[in-house]
């Protein structure tokens, strides 16, 4: 690989440096290419796509595919566009993220600062639940949601995402709070501060970084979820299920430009969150879960 150099890890020969930069740029192009293709082709009229080059920029720019994807494309049987499903996703994701994060913070606080016999077994069970393949709960969940009258509704999806999100949020907060000095909590107890007071006054003010991680993680996972959405969404399908409907519809001409506009619409919220706060996410995640 770097035969030209012998001195240091950071001091490399010119040839090696060119090689490294070249490789890094090639990979950057690899990661960017699909986004470019989607964006460029979502702004072309369909005639330019079917006869043309996917890598070419539009000759006649148009935002019509975007309008169509948003408000008039055929999703399933209704020509509603993706708009109502986008709204479903928002209505689902906001409460689900908030509730699972609050529970995660409280659980993490209990599991690190109010420890009791057997708490690590409970945590182990909770942790394992993060990684189960959801196929194992699909059948009973469908039955329970039906019995509760929550099948095919946004509240049903919120419940599902809260239940299966708590494991991860608890994991994040537990690892984060474990590093917080327990002496401070003890001192506050001796001063007579109670459970919630300590949480509110001591733990919460330092919880910013891990809350960013938890919120981004939950937001991305729940927004991007497809399996639960398509299984239990019914009349209230989220954006991912609707996008899949749009793209897979077998009737009529395949409107690739509309598909791409729809795909970007589905990706936009998580991309925005990532652009705004991604840096904090990686930083916080690394502090919390991977010991370097």
């Amino acid at each position: 690989m770097s035969a030209a150099t012998q001195e240091t890890a950071v001091r490399t020969g010119a040839v090696t440096r060119v090689f490294i930069y070249g490789l890094l740029i090639v990979f950057a192009l690899f990661y960017l290419m699909p986004l470019f293709v989607m964006l460029a082709n979502s702004l072309k009229p369909l005639s330019e796509i079917t006869g043309g080059n996917m890598m070419a920029l539009p000759q006649a720019w148009t935002i019509e595919p975007w309008q169509k994807a948003w408000s008039s494309a055929q999703i399933g049987v209704e020509p509603t566009g993706l708009r109502p499903y986008f709204l479903n996703s928002i209505l689902m994701v906001v409460p689900a993220v908030a509730i699972s994060t609050i529970f995660g913070a409280l659980n993490g606080y209990v599991l690190t600062k109010w420890r009791f016999r057997g708490d690590s077994i409970l945590f182990g069970l909770l942790l394992f639940s993060c990684f189960i393949p959801f196929q194992i709960v699909l059948i009973p969940m469908a039955m329970i949601l039906g019995k509760l009258g929550l099948a095919g509704s946004v509240p049903g999806l919120v419940m599902v995402h809260v239940v299966y999100g708590i494991g991860f949020t608890t994991l994040y907060y537990r690892n984060y709070y474990a590093a917080f000095p327990t002496e401070l909590v003890r001192a506050a107890m001796i001063d007579g501060a109670g459970f919630f007071r300590i949480f509110w006054r001591i733990m919460l003010p330092v919880s910013g970084p891990i809350t960013v991680v938890s919120v981004i993680w939950q937001f991305t996972n729940i927004w991007n979820d497809f399996l639960f959405g398509v299984s239990f969404g019914g009349q209230s399908q989220p954006m991912t299920a609707a996008l899949n409907n749009l793209v897979q519809s077998s009737t009529g001409v395949k409107e690739y430009n509309v598909h791409f506009a729809g795909a970007i619409l589905a990706a936009l919220p998580t991309l925005l969150v990532y652009i705004v706060a991604g840096r904090y996410f990686v930083r916080g995640l690394m502090a919390g879960s991977v010991k370097g």
């Binding site: 290419m33 996917m54 497809f226 996008l243 899949n244 791409f260 795909a263 589905a266 990706a267």
Partner: peptide, 24 residues
């Protein structure tokens, strides 16, 4: 500049990834 370029795909849904690659 490079790091976010490498990382952004993980923010996407697999449905979006599948839609893009199916075509490519």
């Amino acid at each position: 500049l490079l790091r976010p370029v490498y990382l952004y795909p993980m923010a996407l849904s697999f449905i979006v990834t599948g839609t893009a690659w199916k075509w490519i």
